[in-house]
Every structure is written in C-alpha cells, then in structure tokens.
C-alpha cells in the first residue's frame, strides 16, 4: 500500500492552491501533514481521494494512476475520515458505521448480517459499543470522530486519510482520538492525517510533512523536521522548542510571551 505524489499542482481558477507537491507515503506509516489553515491540505486530500481530477502532475496509488480508479475500487483501497460534522439527518451511531460497508453490497441491496457484525466489532475496537443506539448528532464531537473512524474501519480499506481529526475537540478527546490513530498505524494501516498542532505531530507520527502556501517545506522524521525555524516559517511566530523526557516529546512555547513575563519579572 503506497501513495506516490509527484510534482502535483492544482488551481481553482487562477488561484494556485497546490504548487508542485511531491512525497511518498510508505506502507504502514503514519504521516502527518502540518501546516496553517488554508494552505491546501484539504485540497491535496481531495486530489488523493479522487474527488478532484483536474490537477497537473502525477498521483499514484499502489503504482496506478488515481484517476484510473473507479469510485468503488477507490473506496476499497482508501477510506476517508472527515472532520466530525453535523449531517442534515440524525442517524443512529450504528447506522452511521454501517454506511461504511456500502461498497461491499450491491447497489440495490442493504448491508446484511456479515456487515452488521463488522460494524459491531469496529465499535468494540474503538471502545464505543455503548454508543450503538445513540443518535449521531446527539453525541460529543470526540465521540463523533471515533464513530467516523469506526465507519472507515468497516470499509476494510488499508489506507486511512484523516482531515484534521482533532479540530474542535477538547484536550482529552484530542489525545484519545490520536492514541487510537497511532494504534491503528501499529496494526498495519497506512495513515495520512493533517493537523496544525506541532506538539501533537511530534508525539503522534512516524514522519511529518510541513506545508505552507501549497508547497512542501520539509519532510522527514519529527525530530529532524520540527525546528524553531520551521515553526516560524509556517506560522510566523517565534517559538522556543523544549525537548522533554529525552526528546520523547517536544513542546513549542511562543517566545514573545516568555520574554514579556521575564522583563516584567526583572523590572
């Protein structure tokens, strides 16, 4: 399972969104794409998922052009996990998860016993079997994100793409969701996720790709890539990177704030 992107560019009208992106997502790796909002991460995902096809350059999935995949074939290889959203109609959590199995049943039939078992075990796997009969719009944002992940698991695709899985979640839910993502990567899923939080990127990824204004700024292991210079380039904020627990974690601290406090302390 691999995704190879070579020199991919995409523009909406004359606005260039992606500018010569190249990277390879290797089999069974957890790749985080780090960058500020509006930098083209979602557009890149839409190209990879086959939702946008008018791009320049090459996008290969397991060595084959993504544009040659049929919609059903694509869904068997890649599952997409959107940001936890609020659909127009309230479905039960179980029905929502069951929708992930749609690609396994013919157009005129509904998921059967086999698919229902899959959905049950996906809910177990993510530790949310108690939500089964709840309404999807009535549970918390973190729970919704886990439900969407369960839905992706029953799709039985080996590549998972997550669009800012922790956006709008509280701290506890962010960590719970990211821990699940990490353990899925250990089980052999190839995962690409986007995020704008550098600290989390360090804790929860095998490799990081930093993106700004549609370009790749850096790509490599978190310890190589995440430097104060890069963070400043990405977000325009001077930070101090603190390494903790023998570099098992790194924390960004905005310099302006520490310096102000220090000056106040001195005066």
């Amino acid at each position: 399972m691999s995704i190879e992107i070579a020199n991919l560019s995409f523009s909406y009208g004359d606005r260039l969104i992606l500018d010569g992106i190249s990277f390879v997502a290797k089999d069974k790796e957890l790749l985080s794409i780090l960058g500020p909002n509006g930098t083209g991460k979602s557009t890149l995902f839409r190209c990879i998922l086959g939702l946008l096809s008018k791009y320049k350059g090459q996008a290969l999935l397991n060595g084959m052009d993504i544009r040659d995949f049929r919609i059903q074939e694509m869904a068997q290889v890649i599952a997409y996990i959107p940001q936890s959203h609020y659909p127009s109609f309230n479905y039960s959590v179980f029905d929502m998860v069951l929708m992930g199995t749609t690609v396994q049943v013919s157009t005129i039939s509904s998921p059967g016993i086999k698919q229902r078992k899959l959905a049950e075990s996906a809910l177990e796997r993510l530790g949310i079997p108690h939500l089964k009969q709840r309404g999807y719009t009535q549970i918390s944002g973190g729970e919704r994100q886990l439900v969407l992940m369960a839905r992706a698991l029953v799709q039985e695709a080996k590549i998972l793409i997550l669009d800012e899985p922790t956006a709008n979640l509280d701290f506890g839910n962010q960590i719970r969701v990211l821990t699940q993502i990490k353990s899925l990567a250990k089980e052999g899923y190839t995962i690409i996720q986007s995020t704008h939080n550098p600290d989390q990127t360090f804790l929860f990824s095998d490799r990081v790709m930093a993106m700004k204004d549609g370009k790749v700024l850096a790509l490599g292991t978190p310890s190589d890539v995440l430097t104060p210079e890069l963070i400043q380039q990405l977000y325009g904020i001077e930070v101090e990177l603190q390494s903790l627990y023998e570099d098992k974690a790194r924390v960004c601290i905005p310099k302006s704030i520490i310096e102000d406090d220090y000056q106040q302390f001195c005066s």
């Binding site: 939702l51 919609i71 694509m74 869904a75 890649i78 959107p82 109609f89 929708m99 749609t102």
Partner: peptide, 16 residues
C-alpha cells in the same frame, strides 16, 4: 442514506 452525507463523503464510501 449514504447520499444524505453529501457527494464527497458518499464517493469516498464507493457510491457514485
């Protein structure tokens, strides 16, 4: 059911 989630999501779940 799948269509009510929107075109993009439906497509990524294998529905044209």
């Amino acid at each position: 059911n799948v269509l009510t989630l929107g075109d993009d999501e439906a497509k990524t779940m294998g529905v044209n």
